[in-house]
């Protein structure tokens, strides 16, 4: 049974996964992924992915692929015909800088899918990345949460602009689906409903 939940026009369904996730080969170097990226990465220019890893990433010849951000950037020429054929999506980690994607892929909507990988369910950067992709950069296609994606984050992910959710393999997507609707009338405006309660309803009664 698939563990992928997809929202279509507000309705959630469990669907088969048409996309293959491409991972970077393992590295010997320990990456400091959880550090604040501005503090440690942007200022120091420290890289979390090596060129060898990018070069050694195996890209299957066929099918729909979600490739790592670093691979999309470094091997774009190689992937271009498949991007044009709508076969390439991209995924980024929560510590990666969104501007890197934008600088290298001006037309985000040429990508049918963007996924954000969350290593630990308590990492809330995924929400801001979703919000920025939707509101700042105008991404309109499928936005998928992958990694340590659990039921109790779904409501927030949905409100942050995510439209599909790859529930962690050891958990039931069938049970998780209910939590997309934990709350019916949230207070603040967000991606899925931009109006806050105070303009959505006549609360003055």
């Amino acid at each position: 049974m698939s563990n992928l939940i997809q929202l279509t026009n507000g309705a959630a369904h469990i669907v088969d996964n048409a996309w293959t996730l491409i991972k970077l080969p393992a590295t010997q170097v320990e990456a400091r992924k959880q550090a604040g990226k501005v503090v440690l990465f942007k200022l120091t220019g420290e890289k979390t992915v090596t060129e060898t890893q990018v070069a050694n990433t195996v890209i299957p010849a066929n099918g729909k692929l979600i490739v790592p951000l670093t691979v999309l950037i470094a091997r774009k020429a190689e992937l271009q015909t498949r991007i044009d054929a709508n076969e390439i999506g991209v995924w980024l980690d929560t510590h990666e800088v969104l501007e890197t994607l934008i600088e290298n892929q001006a037309n985000l909507n040429a990508l049918p899918l963007i996924a954000v990988h969350v290593e630990r369910c308590a990492d809330g950067r995924i929400f801001s990345l979703g919000v920025l992709l939707r509101t700042r950069y105008g991404f309109k296609n499928e936005l998928r949460a992958i990694g340590d994606v659990l039921r109790d984050q779904l409501f927030f992910l949905k409100r942050s602009g995510f439209t599909s959710f790859a529930i962690r393999a050891d958990r039931s997507a069938t049970e998780a689906i209910a939590s997309l609707n934990d709350f019916t009338q949230p207070y603040q405006g967000a991606v899925d409903e931009v109006r806050p309660a105070f303009t959505r309803y006549n609360r003055a009664g």
Binding site: G124, F127, F155, F156, L157, Y187, Q188, A190, A197
Partner: peptide
């Protein structure tokens, strides 16, 4: 208070 309650973007801060 209302704005901050279940604010989806800020549900899991550092």
């Amino acid at each position: 208070r209302q704005w901050s309650t279940f604010h989806p973007e800020f549900a899991l801060l550092p």
